[in-house]
Design a protein around this nucleic acid. Structure first.
Lengths: 187, 187
DNA sequence: GCAAATTAATGATTTATTCAAG
DNA sequence: CTTGAATAAATCATTAATTTGC
């Protein structure tokens, strides 16, 4: 069994042993505490568009920033992750308008009007909770970069496979609507 | 039971009126025009993990959604197919999303085109793997400096997080470091 | 003024998704 | 269907700000 809950390690928290005295003799093994200059540079990088620096970039940034004080690559990595996430969070907080969360009815089986439904949705997709709404992310056109994008046709092929048997049923049950001719030209 | 055709929603040939939807008002009924509720449910299904619904599932979904407006099984099928593909495409086009400025990185799925050093950081730092191993982590497979191995970055999580010798810059203290104006172009 | 106490920021970890490969 | 890579989200934990009583 691999229940990690039983492990005896004190992975979380604890960790950094401060050796008792806190303010004595530098070298606290606490967390990174960026200098103003470091923050300034990181912020500038961020605001000039950098969001998820590559390993290379992280290394360079780290090296450069080390002139201002102690820093490690992972600090840079974490900084960007956190900053990105928190900016996003901030933004979402502010613009929490939208039309979302009407929470109309997703699992409204019963309902009135004696809909023919019969089958219950919940059984269909035993989704317990609609966790998150798919975010509306805007993708940047961002010129090319190589990227020969013609290789994922394969997936469609796979899906087509599914389609095949999918359409074989062709509305048997209680199809109220027309024959549903469904020409599957795409297969 | 109730024919969808009789429902007050959208009749095939007439003007397709979206029940209270905000977008696209004057669309003809040439093709399925999902209502907000329908999209919401479909999106939630997708978000909950459904990707390629089975025939039965499609049938059920379609039946349920018909309560919100005209819909056919094939619409559900196509929706999933398209949504899946487009989500993938979105990811592929731009791994990092949202946020204001443009983002300049193209990591994720470099198409094996020998992309530069991709993001190995999650592997390096977000050690999610060695949950129980802990004691000896090899954190920097990408060397950077030959001596890394001997250093033996053990107890990455438990002890002082200072380890890291990725860049053994070693805190050049007494630095009378130059201005280092770190122009953002160094990357 | 000053620290203890409390709160706000934010660095560091863990968890959950996603797509794609095998 | 399983697994790998890579996040982003959520959470934990520690440091800085600040408030407060003296």
């Amino acid at each position: 069994m691999d229940e990690r809950s039983m492990s005896g390690f004190c992975i979380r928290s604890g960790s950094c042993v401060r050796s008792g005295s806190t303010t004595t003799t530098g070298t606290k093994c606490g967390r990174w505490n960026p200098t103003n200059e470091q923050v300034k540079v990181l912020t500038e990088l961020f605001s000039s568009g950098l969001r998820t620096p590559s390993t290379d970039q992280i290394q360079k940034i780290s090296t450069q920033l080390s002139f201002y004080g102690k820093i490690e690559s992972k600090n840079v990595f974490y900084w960007f992750q956190n900053h990105k996430a928190r900016e996003r969070q901030k933004r979402r907080r502010k613009a929490s308008n939208s039309d979302d969360d009407d929470d109309n009815n997703i699992r409204r089986e019963n309902t009135t009007s004696g809909n023919s439904s019969s089958q219950n949705f919940s059984q269909l997709y035993q989704v317990s909770e609609p966790k998150r709404v798919i975010e509306t992310l805007e993708l940047f056109p961002l010129n090319s970069f190589g990227e020969s994008g013609s290789k994922n046709l394969r997936n469609y092929t796979n899906e087509c496979r599914d389609n095949n048997n999918m359409f074989s049923y062709t509305m048997r049950e209680q199809m109220d609507h027309p024959p549903l001719d469904l020409c599957l030209s795409f297969m």
